[in-house]
């Protein structure tokens, strides 16, 4: 089971093997949660989204086909789930105070790791949704450009320019 591909595990789960799901879950637990948390910046909402996404995976298990890589399939479901979330309440989640003003507590201080981390997350949270999504699909989902394009329903060039804008802004914030 350890050496099985994601696709084999998913197909095995679809046939009724719950152990296969556990193995698959272990592999994607962290990146999928990271994808949601970095999007909404709120742990409770991220947990809700994360759980809802897996429930959709479970419900759609019978429709999974080997021809699509599991990773791309999973993140496509996650992306759609997130879009629905944004659509439901345009308010999204307000930025936590530490992200809204990352330098408030340390004015003039040297940027240490913690501040750097906070700044990065704040900058990530203020990116336009599409750019943040493209970047997180790359960083958390480890998807290629074509897969990002397919998941988000745009052309490869659009996906590429979204990534470029996102990384440019982050580099500016980080001062690199």
């Amino acid at each position: 089971m350890k050496g099985d591909s994601d696709e084999a595990l998913m197909l095995s789960y679809a046939k009724g093997n719950a152990k296969s799901f556990e193995a698959l879950y272990g592999r994607y637990r962290q990146p999928l949660f990271g994808y949601f948390l970095r999007h909404v910046s709120d742990e409770a909402t991220a947990n809700d989204l994360y759980q809802g996404c897996w429930e959709k995976v479970i419900a759609a298990r019978g429709r999974y086909r080997r021809r699509s890589p599991f990773r791309a399939w999973l993140f496509r479901i996650a992306h759609n789930h997130l879009v629905d979330h944004y659509r439901r309440g345009r308010d999204a989640s307000p930025l936590p105070p530490e992200l809204a003003d990352p330098d408030a507590d340390n004015p003039g201080e040297e940027i240490d790791n913690q501040v750097r981390r906070t700044r990065f997350l704040a900058a990530l949270a203020t990116l336009p949704e599409e750019q943040r999504d493209a970047l997180l699909l790359r960083l958390e989902g480890d998807l290629g450009l074509d897969q990002i394009a397919a998941v988000t329903g745009v052309g490869a060039e659009t996906a590429k320019s979204r990534l470029r804008y996102a990384t440019k802004k982050l580099k500016e914030v980080l001062g690199v």
Binding site: G34, R117, F120, L174
Partner: peptide, 15 residues
């Protein structure tokens, strides 16, 4: 640089 900052931000886990 962006990737490094992302790594520093940690790997959050679900409840």
């Amino acid at each position: 640089e962006v990737r490094a900052a992302w790594r520093e931000a940690g790997a959050p886990e679900p409840a």
